[in-house]
């Protein structure tokens, strides 16, 4: 092993502690040196983590850059395990964008390392004001990372990406600005649409009950209280009392449907449906929502717009609101209500 020379052997112990301390203190600071590349020849490569981030970057960069999303569609970003090829790809990328707020779990440290090496590495949520973020009380430093479920908030990330690309490739700055503006227009339309359709749900039964806790931003922004069977952490599990309370909520409020996310086994909400049924209130499985990952690549649901459109339309239709069957742009495949009951 060439890597360990006699020098480090001799002082291995001291180095060990030093390195722990350094790595520990290194975590907090993440202000990479701003790269000042003015001219970029040809297409440059951008690596993104999630599909949502890649979607922004593709929209803004247009054909100027080769955009790669590490996580294929339908992958849980919390638990994504990068392999060697991902590391190589990140090492070779010109720019890296990730979602941030600890969404990428164990990869966080890698971004810090790569950024420490002078590479432009950005969390797209970095400039969203702390006040706009949802953080559980007592845990202020640990905001909920599922920002994209609030379209308004997410469009701040578009501005952030555009600004970084403009700085990186100044010659085409104009184009990026225009692209970003166009995309933000689309997002604004989407935001209005979601607000409208969710607003049509009768207020008494306007409750979003899901399997797993990922829709807090959606809840805040579109005024629909959210309840989930289990918490955020994968290992988290509900108590019997929690389930009973949920059932009582559904029954007393006459909430017509509850939802599963694509990443969770539908069986987890079946118990709630059955519980309500036993009290004489028939709850539907409202369909599958995309929470942490988008739909299949190449489909409408495989884009950020489609994903949110799908979620909003599905929720609205299942909860007795009014929305076009095929969504905002008429691109959804029929009523998105695909019941997927039983285990």
């Amino acid at each position: 092993m060439q890597l360990v020379d006699s020098y480090s052997h001799k002082r291995a112990h001291g180095w060990c502690w030093l390195s722990i301390v350094l790595s520990v203190t290194g975590c907090g600071s993440s202000n990479p040196t701003e790269p000042s590349t003015a001219n970029v020849e040809g297409r440059y490569s951008i690596v993104c983590t999630t599909g949502m981030v890649a979607d922004i970057v593709t929209q803004v960069a247009g054909d100027r850059a080769e955009v790669t999303a590490l996580m294929a569609e339908g992958v849980d970003p919390h638990l994504y395990v990068p392999t060697r090829s991902d590391v190589v790809r990140m090492q070779e990328a010109d720019i890296i964008f990730y979602s941030g707020l600890r969404l990428e779990g164990a990869m966080q440290k890698t971004f810090e390392t790569l950024s420490g090496n002078g590479r432009p590495v950005y969390a797209v949520t970095a400039e969203i004001p702390q006040n706009d973020l949802l953080a559980p009380p007592n845990f202020e430093g640990h905001p909920d990372p599922h920002v994209w479920n609030d379209v308004k908030l997410w469009s701040q990330a578009v501005a952030f990406v555009a600004a970084r690309l403009e700085a990186y490739d100044t010659t085409n700055a104009e184009e990026y600005r225009a692209n970003a503006e166009a995309y933000r227009q689309q997002l604004n339309a989407l935001d209005t649409y979601v607000r409208e359709v969710i607003g049509t749900i009768p207020e008494a039964q306007r409750y979003l009950v899901t399997a797993h806790d990922a829709f807090e931003y959606f809840s805040r922004s579109y005024r629909i209280p959210v309840e989930s069977v289990q918490g955020i952490t994968t290992e988290s599990e509900a108590g019997v009392d929690d389930i009973n309370r949920l059932v009582d909520l559904l029954v007393t409020k006459k909430v017509p449907a509850i939802f599963v996310e694509s990443s969770v086994n539908a069986a987890n909400i079946q118990a709630v449906i059955n519980g309500a049924q036993s009290q004489g209130w028939a709850v539907n499985n409202g369909g599958t929502l995309f929470s942490d990952a988008m739909g299949a690549e190449g489909t409408y649901e495989g884009t950020y717009l489609g994903m949110i459109d799908h979620n909003a339309t599905t929720i609205t239709l299942s909860l007795g609101g009014v929305a076009p069957n095929n969504g905002m742009q008429g691109k959804l495949n029929g009523a998105a209500v695909t019941t997927n009951q039983g285990k």
């Binding site: 638990l79 990068p82 600890r102 779990g105 164990a106 990869m107 440290k109 390392t113 559980p136 990372p145």
Partner: peptide, 17 residues
């Protein structure tokens, strides 16, 4: 329950990175 605290994310490392 509102913080993502999987040991895989917060404690365990990944050899490749």
């Amino acid at each position: 329950d509102n913080v993502h605290l999987d040991v895989d994310c917060v404690l365990f490392g990944i050899i490749e990175t």
